[in-house]
């Protein structure tokens, strides 16, 4: 089975199957974060990175802090905790209960609240400028720079 993929606004078929993608830990490669929902043109680099990872068969392993959660998989839907750590996604509504300790860590209200104020006085590169550079990097197919810029953009939010 082919996955239909949208790269740079173009709908095309991607030669990989859902099972393979899942085995590689690339859960739901079509799903996007909220900012990307309406800007399909902006996530070409992300898609390319996923495709590249699949091709190379490697996974970007994040050094995950060992948590005390007993379950590493949701007993209802089999969703691995490790995938949540990598993608921020969950498999089913019950995952919220199963992985509640892990979620508590991520959704501490203070953690996200404080951030925007910290770079209030030191706007190194604005989001617009970064986005522009990101687009340019993608246009010249410089995915290394694109990845770095994307990370900087992430840090802004």
């Amino acid at each position: 089975m082919l996955l239909t993929q949208i790269v740079n606004g173009q709908v095309s078929d991607l030669a990989l199957c859902e099972t393979c993608a899942r085995e590689k830990g690339l859960f739901d490669p079509q799903s996007l974060t909220f900012a990307e929902k309406f800007f399909p043109e902006e996530f070409k680099a992300k898609v390319d990175k996923l495709v590249q990872e699949l091709a190379e068969g490697k996974r970007v392993e994040k050094p995950s802090t060992k948590r005390t959660d007993v379950l590493t998989k949701c007993p209802v839907c089999d969703f691995p905790l490790e995938t949540y750590r990598k993608t921020g996604r969950l498999g089913c509504p019950d995952c919220y209960t199963v992985f509640s300790r892990e979620l508590e860590l991520q959704t501490t209200p203070g953690a996200t609240e404080a951030q925007p104020q910290t770079h209030e006085d030191a706007p190194a590169l604005s989001r617009i400028a970064l986005e522009k550079q990101l687009k340019e990097a993608i246009a010249r197919e410089d995915y290394e720079t694109a990845a770095a810029l994307r990370d900087q953009l992430k840090d802004l939010t």
């Binding site: 606004g9 709908v11 929902k37 399909p40």
Partner: peptide, 12 residues
């Protein structure tokens, strides 16, 4: 997709 009537996720 262009009309923003569906999301890229659904389009796929």
């Amino acid at each position: 997709l262009e009309r923003k009537q569906i999301t890229p996720c659904l389009a796929a």
